[in-house]
Write a protein that binds this DNA or RNA. Structure first.
Lengths: 223, 223
DNA sequence: AAGGGTGTGAAGAGATTGTGAATCAGGCTT
DNA sequence: AAGCCTGATTCACAATCTCTTCACACCCTT
């Protein structure tokens, strides 16, 4: 789906300028411009997914500008995040009423910033087409397994083993391979521990997904 | 729907007195009174939609008075906006806990003042529908949590942790992730501090919202 | 029938988390 | 300055869940 494009208006403030490098180091394509004029010049070419806009701009307020952008047919789908340096910015309500999608204060924790941006950008994707029914989906973030459309929360070891098998579907993993991958070398486990975990997984997501290859190991069966 | 009625307690302060003329020039019907006694005399006759109340009053604090008003059946629906002359009034949280609907600092820009008053008066209509849709709302500006329609004011650390979890709902955050995001790297906390904060949050907003993933971390559960 | 390999039930060991309470620091009040 | 309050941190213990191990049954092949 390509990198998300962010158009950052820094208004010549250092705090906002630094965001460019930070976001650039993450998974975003960032263009930083100084003011409203430069913003408008870049809109067409850069075609951003999201605009970060300071509330305090030179000519007009970021809130007015936000409103303006949201009213244009071509641009109304672009996310707008307002930035403020004052932690107690009383404009938040006016800001959100102007159609902005989120409101962030400086200083903001990096993780929080990233989280909100990603959540915002993700919002759009989830909307149009839902993912088709794959037999097995593993969501590392949520620690969630979706098998045949049903969600399961597995305990840690079971989750890790299933993730391992899923990393190479249809490959047969020997018990030793699994042990080496899941357990630290020193706290080696003996005996049938792996087998028991496999059983637990089968009880939960169904027996059909994991096949036993006698004398060799286990295999995640996907078509 | 007719003009909104505002009852302004000016406490003989010029800054507050001047609000009467300003608001009167807008779309409001304003009655200004000096103190608590005059306020109570006018409540019944004037039947205001909104009361503006200084934090520093002569006899008792505006916060106590606010609490008092909100407890009366007949008056509990009236909006109360607290006014403070100290920009960093530490009573803000206590003030909001007393049931006040908003908190304004002097000097306040006219536009901001109007925006917030209007937003407040508008809120009543929007509230019921909005509440049922979202299980958790975090208002960074007012330091306010709304969980299942109930408002809470959490201490700083709890608020920050909940904000972090909310930045990516349903994602599992490990304790280390939480520590790195909330605490500065040098003043690292050890042990079970995060767990205790999570407990405090659960005690307040309910245990159902935050799920524990054993061996991994915590997750904010939203559908 | 024997034997290797695997599924299954159960139980103890182990680890993680919930919980009550003590301690400490900072701000505010008296 | 002393005392009180709230919030933050830490500790110890209990409750809970997970992991591991064992024993036995079962299947398949020889």
């Amino acid at each position: 789906m390509g990198k998300h494009r962010i158009l950052l208006v820094h208004n010549n403030k250092q705090e906002f300028r630094s965001l460019k490098d930070f976001l650039g180091a993450e998974d975003f394509e960032v263009v930083a411009v100084a003011d409203e004029v430069a913003l408008k010049e870049n809109m067409g070419d850069f075609n951003p997914d999201l605009i970060m806009l300071p509330v305090e701009l030179s000519a007009k307020s970021g809130i007015e500008l936000c409103e303006e952008i949201k009213q244009k047919q071509d641009y109304s789908e672009i996310f707008i995040v307002l930035l403020s340096q004052k932690k107690e910015d009383h404009n938040i309500i006016a800001g959100l009423e102007s159609g902005a999608d989120d409101f962030l204060f400086q200083p903001v924790h990096e993780r929080v910033l990233l989280g909100r941006l990603r959540a915002l950008l993700k919002r759009r994707q989830n909307k149009p087409a839902h993912q088709e029914e794959t037999a097995l989906i593993i969501d590392q973030d949520r620690y969630l397994i979706i098998a045949k459309g049903v969600e399961y929360y597995l305990p840690k070891k079971e989750f890790e083993i299933l993730s391992l098998l899923n990393s190479r579907p249809n490959k047969v993993f020997s018990r030793d391979e699994i042990k080496n991958a899941i357990w630290d070398n020193f706290e080696k486990v003996r005996g049938r521990t792996v087998d028991v975990h496999i059983r637990k997984i089968r009880e939960k997501i169904g027996a059909g997904l994991i096949t036993t290859v006698k004398g060799v190991g286990y295999r995640l069966e996907l078509n």
